[in-house]
Nucleic acid binder design. Structure first.
Lengths: 200, 200
DNA sequence: TGCGAGTTAGTGAATACTAACTCACTCTCC
DNA sequence: GGAGAGTGAGTTAGTATTCACTAACTCGCA
């Protein structure tokens, strides 16, 4: 069930509003104004706000997951290359959407809304599973099992997302971003690293 | 201005409520019930909700920053050891509070509330500055400048926080956590890593 | 007696959602 | 081809709920 043209227009406006001023500013009234008609008209296109949010998340997932699956399954690439490609794509999506995914996650965490967290969590779990498939090929590193390592590759996108929304003054250029992504994935996929000195 | 005993009691209950069911569930009414009296009585102790939230954040900062400063300034330790200690302490605080810091960050991001984001951002900036002091001693790594590297050490706590609140079923033991922290800091502080193969 | 710390009862604003209506457009039947 | 029914998509006006916050009171106590 792909969105109708009108639904797509609504989703576009909703994403704009959220990118501009956060999810709390996405009220049905403000969204209707942005689209250019009145509040009750929105309910002709979506049965309620949670359906609207779910559609937004599904749309984001559609921009994230298929490419992820493609990269994760590309056996011409080494596991390291695949992880690099996956993190790169995730970060690129974050930057292109001004941190939209992390805003949905933030809203889910802050509100405790079950449905919302189920939508967001569903996408994230599939993402983590894909990472886990690839880290499994690398094997455990530093005593950390493959599926725990997958969590680590969530770390950089999370940090980038936080920077985007909370510290826009620390903006990273495309080049800096690419360097950081490479440095990050490269470092975390080294076959063996020397043990650090014990801390007190 | 340390909190009065009654204020401390209120802050305790507020932290409990948030840990249990998210910041959206922290209403003045529910908080009053939890403390054991009625809503208007709260206003005898805090002039409003934002003052209450600010006090909660300041309290969290008080549990995070002094230890951070101590570790960052301990010149008996190598920079790697200091970073390890700082990340370890941050992660320990997250786990002890069931992800409280990331919930405040999430609320700030989702709500777009200026005052709240100023409180949260203030603590985070001081944290990032301390990390930056230490990464500066390490010098640039993989073409990433010292202050950009500081962002990276936000990545693991962020990932751990997300796991705590969004995927409690993936809970990490203390031992696993310590291994992950060590692996993470160790990997990201290697003096030089071989370049990864270029991805298409 | 004055004050700190509670109470009851209530206000106003914001929000998701709804009821009932209008109106243009299309399809059908003659 | 045109009258009439049905429908999709908008409108105005309103409801119920939830929230932070307040006014005005009570009560125990130094």
């Amino acid at each position: 069930m792909p969105p109708t043209p009108r639904q797509a227009e609504i989703l576009d406006c909703a994403a704009e509003l959220v990118a501009e001023s956060g999810l709390a500013q996405l009220t049905m009234k403000r969204l209707a104004e942005r689209v250019g008609f009145t509040e009750p008209a929105l309910y002709r296109h979506y049965p309620g706000k949670s359906a609207l949010l779910a559609a937004m998340i599904e749309r984001l997932g559609g921009r994230l997951l298929p490419t992820m699956e493609e990269i994760a399954g590309d056996r011409r690439l080494t596991p390291r290359e695949r992880l690099l490609g996956m993190v790169r794509h995730h970060v690129a999506l974050l930057r292109a959407t001004r941190g939209l995914p992390i805003l949905f996650l933030a809203e889910g965490l802050a509100s405790g809304d079950r449905d919302l967290m189920a939508s967001v969590g569903g996408v994230m779990r599939r993402y983590l599973a894909l990472l886990g498939v690839v880290t499994a090929e690398l094997g455990p590193a530093g005593g950390v099992s493959a599926d725990r390592q997958a969590l680590l590759f969530l770390g950089l996108p999370a940090a980038i997302g936080i920077q985007l929304r909370a510290f826009p003054d620390l903006a990273l250029s495309d080049e800096e971003t690419e360097l950081i992504v490479q440095h990050y994935v490269r470092s975390l996929t080294l076959p063996a690293a020397p043990a650090p000195e014990k801390s007190s």
